[in-house]
Design a protein around this nucleic acid. Sequence first.
DNA 1: TTGTATGCGTTATCAC
DNA 2: GTGATAACGCATACAA
Lengths: 352, 352
Amino acid sequence: MANLAGVSTGTVSRALSRPGMISDATRMRVLAAADRLGYVANGSARALALRRTLTVGAIVPRYGSSSFPTMVQGLESALAAEGYTLLLSAPAHEAAREPAILRTLLERGVDAVALLGAEQPPQTFAILSAHRIPFVMMWALHSRDGDCIGFDESAAAACVIDHLSSLGHRSIGFIGGHTADNERARNRYRGIVEAVARRGMSLCKGASVETDYGFRQGFEAMQQILRAGAPVSAILCGNDYLAAGALSALDRARIEVPRQLSIASFNDNEFAAYLHPPLTTVRLPISGIGQQAGRHLIARLRGRQPPAPAPLPVTLIVRESTGLAAGPASARTSTPPARRGAPKRGSRNADA
Amino acid sequence: MANLAGVSTGTVSRALSRPGMISDATRMRVLAAADRLGYVANGSARALALRRTLTVGAIVPRYGSSSFPTMVQGLESALAAEGYTLLLSAPAHEAAREPAILRTLLERGVDAVALLGAEQPPQTFAILSAHRIPFVMMWALHSRDGDCIGFDESAAAACVIDHLSSLGHRSIGFIGGHTADNERARNRYRGIVEAVARRGMSLCKGASVETDYGFRQGFEAMQQILRAGAPVSAILCGNDYLAAGALSALDRARIEVPRQLSIASFNDNEFAAYLHPPLTTVRLPISGIGQQAGRHLIARLRGRQPPAPAPLPVTLIVRESTGLAAGPASARTSTPPARRGAPKRGSRNADA
DNA sequence: TTGTATGCGTTATCAC
DNA sequence: GTGATAACGCATACAA
């Protein structure tokens, strides 16, 4: 390639990556030769010489069956905008804590790493700091071990619990994810417990279920709650799928929904609200986590000081405006809610 | 690192990657030293020497808002099982056809590439073959340009259309994705058109809508169809989200669903069936596409001849057993359908 | 079994 | 502005 253009390899390198340092004539010759040979630079060699790969690794377990893809999309786009490529590792859940995963990423020469959650095996931080690899933890709020990009689960919980309280609810149930092996589900649950206590409400044991995030799981959890006949006036759901399943189970059980039992949810998508327009939801900044994480890492890689990580705002979307005794709300909300991102009835920022 | 163990660099290399060629004693010493230094091999240097990176690139546009993550998860797991890592590129849709994306991947030194769909700019194939990079096209069936891993959209369409025909439907509508910029939506639509013609049925213009895949879109499309008052007895939906939205709109419009209007769907998830138990769906092998693609590439990379790509089976899940005049089916299907992967009423393989 | 030497393709440093 | 040359860290052929 160098001798096709009749120049040295050094000149080729400069022509391709330092266009300013070279005469127009030879640059043209090099570019023409590159074009004719279908030349693409060898990134491994470049990485070896430069000691950086323009690659960022992400470790995101439980990938396919969650809202993580949205987050990863945000991450990828933020990185791609700055010329970085995403190296994705999506281990099965059991393997997620294996340091071997991180090793693989480091061997690939990633310049930075994005992790899901703040709970990592201690070795992870040891390895990362030993190699001086910038990293962030996504979907987490605080950690002594490094910077986190996420939102405040407690604020989100307070947000919706306050709303339920103002509607007159006193005893509620909760259908959420497994807290044992899911840091996010645990935080969310904790936030709810605290918010409920603060408001003098109670979280009914007989109407609280831990399950996997999913439509079927929400459906079955609600059936179980209905069978138990717990004395609650509202059920809060850990995410949109659970809420949609729960709503479906309610419908199937022929219970008049708005009158007897309110549903509220943390939502990632928006379809549950369609199923049941009076549904109140907390909109979580999933995609924003990824984008923010990407920008954070870019700043660190460029030697800039990233802005101090602040919790991303969550938004309460209120689709019922009256108390417990209100009639079916669907009569007043026949148009789809949340058009064009604008909350239908009202919204407020949990961090405001 | 070499002199900490008191051996040469060559020995270190062998101890780590050719454990058989070395004495146990020195191997131990090397491993101990590696452990103490937190040594991780430099993949760029290894790639440079070995001329392979153990990395596979994937280009998957429109990533976050689709069922592609499921496919990518399958791909990633199949690759990881063989020691390969996935380099993911998720360009915005407009940029997907840019050869620059592929260039970036090649510069990163990917050993193989997985592409979404068979419709690629001609340069893509030129570049890939010029560099002798094995590649597959995912979610596509046939191509002169290379191997495809996917399922037969025509068979899937025939499957569900035959069923609708056997139920007595003659004129139906279709809510599907945009065919102009979506190869898969186009194939699906074409399959339906052909199957409808074969059965002597008709696809009603006034009840056919192209839109984005999404709950809201399905909802609005169905509203539009209802307003138009087209003379159809069934609506087929391009995916689960559209179906769920359409069902919701039907409910909202207080139309007695099973009697007046049947719904059928291509589904990727399963929640739409919960919303409306008599829903008939075609289960698509999304995750399987990724896995198969991964195995295909691995075989090629290992120098083995991969099995000739065959269409992956699609499964019809029939949840209504009677004809048009049947009463509400929900009375007979109060338990959630499709438990543990077993079709509820009956199923057959479109490829059988 | 182990040490030595060379090459992988690029960038950076230094001459010119 | 350009050419020569030395790294970059690993694998391997060859020698010992």
